[in-house]
């Protein structure tokens, strides 16, 4: 379970380019829930995910995962609990390492790394079996440098890597955005399968309203560093893309009014 309470984060405070990226952002995700996150550019989605993963320190607020306070933990300290797939396919893998070395790295996510060989025969078989489920022929290319793979292939491997080791939270930040439509659909399908298979608590940022509603059990909308919409269950089932777009426009309008009031 993720519990983020009252997160605040300001970039470049006290300068003309000051940006309040998170303004009292709170969100609770029960164990096993798959949440999709939407919001306009600059709403604070990536900042929120970065705060949860530890890449950005919050100015105030509290981040707990399964009751453990993570607020002050560095990225590598949280990695035991948090798995990630980045938007940029190049970011989630080490291009200089082979496919199996990348997977071996992920297999030990958050654990002590000792002096035994990273890729052992038994592990190699496990990786081969995992890769063959992708149907991309990668099971025969274990010792190829991962830099030789296409973006879609790398993203698919990244997803497998995220699930090699149990995690309490999976973070996906527009992880299909850099892919062509067919590959994106494939990676999304794979995501749904892996999340279901491992019953992962998941937060997925997307710009596609369709995706946001089709996938997962709950959808939240961020605006100006806060949750402005949170739908699940029956209410969500009744929603359509244009409903969502309407709400999108509405909250945006309201928020602008809010600010106008404040400024006035």
């Amino acid at each position: 379970m993720l519990k983020a309470s009252e997160l605040r984060l300001t970039f470049n405070p006290g300068t003309p380019i000051e940006t309040q990226a998170l303004r009292g952002m709170s969100l609770e995700i029960p164990t096993g829930q798959f949440v999709t996150v939407i919001g306009s550019n600059g709403a604070g989605k990536s900042t929120f995910l970065n705060a949860v993963s530890g890449e950005q320190r919050v100015d105030s607020g509290k981040i707990e995962i399964d009751g453990i306070d993570m607020t002050r933990q560095p990225v590598w300290g949280r990695a035991r609990h948090v798995a990630r797939v980045f938007q940029d396919p190049l970011a989630g893998t080490c291009e200089d390492l082979t496919i199996e070395e990348n997977m071996a790295l992920a297999k030990m996510r958050g654990e002590r790394r000792g002096f035994s060989f990273a890729v052992k025969p038994a592990l190699r078989e496990e990786f081969r079996a995992q890769l063959s489920t992708l149907g991309l022929g990668l099971e025969n290319r274990l010792s190829d440098r991962i830099g030789l793979l296409s973006g879609g292939q790398r993203q698919a491997v990244s997803l497998l890597m995220a699930a090699l080791q149990p995690s309490r939270l999976l973070l996906l930040d527009e992880h299909t955005a850099a892919l062509d439509p067919r590959t994106a659909a494939f990676v999304l399908e794979l995501t749904v399968r892996i999340v279901a298979e491992h019953k992962l608590t998941t937060m997925m940022v997307t710009h596609s309203m369709r995706q946001a509603l089709d996938v997962g059990q709950r959808t939240v909308m961020l605006h100006q560093g806060r949750v402005v919409l949170d739908v699940s269950g029956k209410e969500r089932e009744g929603l359509d893309v244009h409903h969502l777009l309407d709400m999108f426009e509405k909250v945006r309008g309201e928020k602008i009014d809010d600010d106008a009031l404040l400024l006035g």
Binding site: S53, E55, P74, V75, W76, G77, A79, R80, R84, A91, G92, T93, C94, E95, D96, L97, E101, A104, L105, A106, M108, R109, G110, E111, R113, G114, F115, S116, F117, A118, V119
Partner: peptide, 24 residues
């Protein structure tokens, strides 16, 4: 080619990824 050595290579190749995998 050990786990610890791989962590060093990953750090040089992609530090952000290495951290996300729990490498200090």
């Amino acid at each position: 080619s050990t786990q610890s050595g791989l962590a060093i290579r990953a750090t040089g190749s992609n530090a952000r990824m290495a951290r996300a995998q729990g490498v200090n």
